[in-house]
């Protein structure tokens, strides 16, 4: 299953090799022309003589950690890669380096803590990864400074039609994009699997510069906080509520004509959809939007609870409905659609 393979793959920002390889293999028989660039973006090019140049984008990278220092006791200190809440790190198993050396992020036993310590967040700079090495030298036989680290989370399905795993942001988007690329359309279609989104929307801008699209759709895994303790008006998205369309976030404002068309298609075809209810955060759409002389964009997201943590939760139906909605939109472009 592609989603399982992709979420369990090793791919923090700047080290997306495994994800790239899986996607290329998956799409081998559907895509003949691949374009690559200096940052590592992977662009599937499905050329056609006429019609608008359409760019779809999903990012391959995930949040993670990077080994910054090995101390004399053989413990690994680390930097964060992308936005991770320090509070999710304690008491988690991880993999260090592409050889996946197992490690754990421990913490002082509760017995040894003063009562006031327990109310305080342990900053990531005070945490470390234990790989079972007894000394600096022993640790350096297995890992090196600069090795990336990911959460050692297995993909699984649970509950009613839900899946849990790491990196649904944005491997779920990669699945959607891969499925769409398996079909043929009568206009030039560019599927960009981008790098370095989590550290500042880095890959999408250069990919868009190379592609020069007439319009673009960004497929994202997005925040979902429809849980107890939240007021409904504070929800960003609802799990199972269908693909979430973004009107605006800190990086871009969605193209109104594209949003209208998506809504029309969803309603006519009984596909559930929702609007993202928060405007915080930004995604690759922001960079594509201001590429060259400007590109109309819209972001469509799959809601993911507990995003950027070792285990996030999504609805498989939301992913399927996102695939369906994007395919419908692309078919409608075939019939002539103007932004």
């Amino acid at each position: 299953m592609l989603l399982r393979r992709l979420t369990e793959a090793f791919g923090p920002s700047g080290f997306e090799h495994e994800v790239r390889a899986i996607l290329q293999e998956e799409l081998e028989q559907y895509v003949s022309v691949w374009q690559r660039d200096a940052l590592g973006n992977l662009i599937a090019c499905k050329e056609a003589a006429n019609g608008p140049r359409v760019m779809l984008a999903a990012h391959m990278d995930e949040v993670g950690l990077m080994v910054s220092h090995v101390d004399d006791a053989g413990l690994l200190h680390f930097h964060k890669v992308g936005g991770i809440d320090d509070r999710v790190l304690v008491s988690k198993p991880v993999f260090v380096g592409k050889e996946r050396v197992p490690g754990v992020i421990g913490a002082k036993a509760i017995h040894l803590q003063k009562p006031e310590e327990r109310t305080q967040v342990i900053p990531h700079r005070s945490l470390f990864i234990d790989i079972g090495a007894k000394s600096k030298d022993e640790a350096l036989e297995k890992v090196k400074i600069g090795d990336y680290v990911v959460f050692a989370t297995k993909y699984d399905e649970f509950g009613q039609g839900l899946a849990k795993g790491k990196a649904f942001d944005d491997r779920a988007g990669c699945v959607v994009l891969a499925e769409v690329l398996k079909e043929e359309f009568n206009f030039p279609l560019y599927g960009a699997f981008t790098v370095q989104e989590e550290i500042g929307l880095r890959g999408a801008g250069v990919a868009a510069y190379a592609i020069e699209p007439d319009m673009a759709i960004v497929i994202e895994g997005t925040t979902c906080n429809d849980v107890s303790g939240m007021d409904e008006h504070e929800y960003s998205t609802v799990l199972g509520g269908g693909p979430a369309i973004t009107f605006m976030d800190t990086a871009s404002i969605g193209n109104r004509a594209m949003i209208r068309e998506l809504v029309r298609l969803a309603e006519e075809n009984n596909i559930p959809y929702q609007f993202k209810g928060t405007v915080t955060g930004g995604n690759d759409a922001g960079r594509i939007n201001v590429s060259r002389a400007g590109v109309p964009v819209v972001a469509i997201s799959i809601p993911c609870r507990y995003i950027h943590s070792p285990v996030s939760v999504m609805s498989l139906a939301d992913m399927e409905n996102t695939i369906a909605l994007i395919k419908l939109f692309l078919r409608s472009i075939e019939g002539g659609f103007r932004v």
């Binding site: 990336y148 550290i199 250069v206």
Partner: peptide, 17 residues
């Protein structure tokens, strides 16, 4: 891991990368 806080941060994403 991420931004170097130097000119390089801008240089890397110029044009097509």
């Amino acid at each position: 891991p991420a931004g170097t806080g130097t000119d390089l941060w801008a240089m890397q994403v110029v044009r097509a990368g």
